[in-house]
Amino acid sequence: MGRRAEHWISGITASDVTGREEATRLAQKDIKSAFAVARKIVHPWYRCQALTAVALELANLRERKSALMEAFAAAYEQDEPNRITCASAWPLRALVPIDLAGARQQVIRLLAIISAEPHGLRRLDGLFGLLGAVLDSAELRALVLPAFFLAAESSSGWRSERLVAHMALALGRVDPIAARALLEGRTANRFTSKALAALNTAALR
């Protein structure tokens, strides 16, 4: 989900992109070198993603959590709510299954940050990333859903409809009732109509 929003990022250099890819590749065989490469990445978005990739290769949970906290710190270096939240979705998704309490703290902090996003579509996009990262946790999902519903209600346009439809499909796997509620009341369009048809098909299986 982090890469989905990269078209909104400025200041990216070729070395940021290649650094992320190199760190990800090295993480599978040389953790120390992977960390060295990841930490040299200048752009916080790409450094966050690279550090998350390295963290996922760490078998020791304490070390993995430490690396994920470093990834969060990189995400928080950014100065726009949407960018912070979208980038943070990477380490958050990895943190949820190993430290629910720690993930909850991050979710609460990120909800406060994204609430300050003045642009409706960017706020919805940030919440899309945040909700997607915690979908498998009923507890954390319950924290994010109200904010996502509110953002969806106040956002329109084809990009918003596409985000809502995609989230409805993702929600359908874990909470079909919420998935349908998300689509209710929206003007029929190609995105929501397709999502509703898919939910109806899944319900018949």
Rank of each mutant, 00 (worst) to 15 (best):
P44I: 03
A53D: 06
L51F: 08
L183W: 00
L196S: 09
R47T: 04
Q78I: 06
L95K: 00
W90P: 01
G132D: 08
L51Q: 04
K65D: 12
T187P: 13
A53N: 03
A38H: 03
G102W: 13
D136H: 13
A101Y: 15
K29T: 15
A142R: 08
G129Y: 03
E77M: 01
R159E: 11
T24W: 07
F128W: 12
P176K: 00
K194N: 13
R25A: 12
A36K: 11
S66G: 10
L51E: 10
R205K: 15
Y46C: 02
D125Y: 13
A75C: 01
M167Q: 04
S115T: 07
E153H: 10
R186G: 02
A27W: 02
H166G: 15
G19F: 01
V134P: 04
R173I: 04
W158I: 11
D136M: 13
S193V: 01
A198W: 14
L171W: 07
L95N: 00
R93D: 13
A50V: 07
L196G: 02
S154R: 15
P97Q: 13
A53S: 06
L182N: 05
A142W: 11
D125A: 14
L130R: 00
C48V: 05
A165I: 06
I98A: 11
A181T: 14
V42M: 13
G157W: 00
T52S: 11
A203L: 13
S88M: 05
M167G: 06
R173E: 07
A59C: 09
L130V: 09
L145T: 09
E57S: 10
S10M: 12
A23W: 02
A87K: 03
A55T: 02
K32V: 13
R162A: 10
L171Q: 04
E184A: 06
L92F: 10
L196P: 06
K65M: 10
W90D: 14
S66F: 09
R83D: 12
R93T: 06
R123E: 14
D79L: 10
L169Y: 14
A178K: 00
K194L: 14
T85N: 04
E80A: 14
A73N: 10
L110V: 05
K194D: 12
Q78G: 02
F128Y: 09
E21S: 15
L124G: 00
F191N: 07
A34S: 06
T192S: 12
S33C: 09
A152H: 07
G2M: 14
C48L: 08
W90E: 10
Q105S: 11
